[in-house]
């Protein structure tokens, strides 16, 4: 036993050295693959993204001036009217994900987290965001507004 232990620490021959390499590599690979399985377990299953039509109220509820913030199951949405047409934006700030708010006195969308400012058409006016607010496709059917949004949850499909 003592001999074996010594040879494992300080190999005395090429044969010992090779044995150490093989046993070492086996241990690393074995434990490594185990760790990889654990990591896999931690990585969540991401359902595929789908486009869904989400009802978002009546066109008459949208003010003539400014925007209406509606909370949909797929996220907060801003609805506005321009030239009698309904437009929709995702209210999620493109910087770090807070919800933007309409400031009627300034006629701008302002993100309260890092002062990102967008105009009525969702374009960045100032602040840290680089991209405009995400424009969403809108359909109006039977006096009902539908917004096309990405959904992760299967039950909403």
């Amino acid at each position: 036993m003592e001999d074996l232990a010594l040879s494992a620490i300080a190999p005395r021959s090429r044969r010992d050295f090779m044995a150490n390499i093989i046993m070492g590599a086996g241990t690393v690979l074995g434990l490594g693959s185990l760790a990889y399985r654990f990591l896999e377990y931690l990585y969540p299953v991401v359902p595929p993204i789908k486009l869904v039509e989400v009802p978002a109220g009546k066109p008459d509820d949208i003010p003539a001036e400014g925007a209406r913030l509606v909370q949909l199951p797929t996220g907060p949405v801003l609805l506005e009217k321009a030239d009698n047409e309904v437009h929709a934006f995702s209210a999620v700030c493109t910087h770090l994900g807070c919800t933007v708010q309409w400031r009627p006195e300034e006629k701008k969308f302002v993100c309260p987290c890092h002062q990102g400012i967008y105009d009525f058409a969702g374009n960045v006016l100032s602040g840290p965001p680089l991209r405009p607010l995400e424009k969403l496709e809108v359909k109006v059917r039977d006096e009902q507004v539908f917004v096309l949004m990405k959904s992760l949850k299967e039950e909403q499909g």
Partner: peptide
């Protein structure tokens, strides 16, 4: 969720 308060 979906409603960030004004002062945060």
């Amino acid at each position: 969720p979906g409603n960030t308060p004004g002062h945060i």
